[in-house]
């Protein structure tokens, strides 16, 4: 397996070149995270030019020997931002992140995601955070991140706002 070691701002992380866009790191509590960016062109299917650049992000605890919910760890956000800086070397890319709501902490997750990206990413990224709600009351917290140098910036903003406002108009 061919591997590449990457510079780290926070925890040291690696990606596996046989599985593109997958990164792993281990915290000082021995919790192993995987950050996965999966191609997801269907999200902006109305604008086919954008399709190759859209990725859904998952932040997954793949090993947790503590058996408890991972504690707050100040090294995780800069690690994620360092991974972002590698992933966004292709400036046209778009990351869409939907927060897990199964434990009713979706809104808090979205807030946390937004704040660390602002703190560590600075002006390098543009982010939009919004929500969709269905008739049963289920809420989907959706975030969208692009590089501030993204050449499709205006089109992406329109595509994302169409996705969200379509839901909000009747609410």
């Amino acid at each position: 397996m061919k591997k590449q070691e990457l510079p780290s701002l926070g925890y040291r992380f690696r990606n596996d070149l046989t599985t593109p866009n997958v990164f792993v790191f281990e915290t000082s509590n021995s919790i192993v995270y995987e950050i996965r960016f999966k191609p997801s062109g269907y999200i902006f299917a109305n604008d086919p030019d954008l399709e190759p650049f859209v990725f859904e992000m998952s932040i997954v605890v793949i090993d947790n020997p503590t058996g408890k919910r991972p504690p707050r760890d100040t090294l995780v956000p800069p690690t994620l931002t360092a991974i972002f800086s590698i992933f966004f070397e292709q400036h046209e890319r778009i990351v869409v992140y939907i927060c897990d709501t199964s434990d009713k902490r979706g809104e808090a997750r979205q807030r946390k995601f937004s704040s660390w990206l602002t703190l560590y990413g600075g002006d390098n990224y543009i982010q939009f955070n919004d929500r969709l709600q269905d008739d049963s009351g289920e809420i989907y917290f959706v975030s969208f991140v692009i590089k501030s140098s993204n050449p499709y910036q205006q089109r992406l903003i329109v595509a994302f706002s169409e996705l969200i406002t379509a839901n909000q108009q009747d609410k």
Binding site: V22, E34, V60, D134, Y140
Partner: peptide
């Protein structure tokens, strides 16, 4: 449009859970 947006959000949530399990 609203149904299309919700369908995308539901698909994203399903994909997220599948990606987590896969990882």
């Amino acid at each position: 449009r609203r149904e299309r947006s919700l369908a995308i959000a539901r698909r994203m949530m399903a994909n997220k859970k599948a990606a987590e399990q896969e990882a």
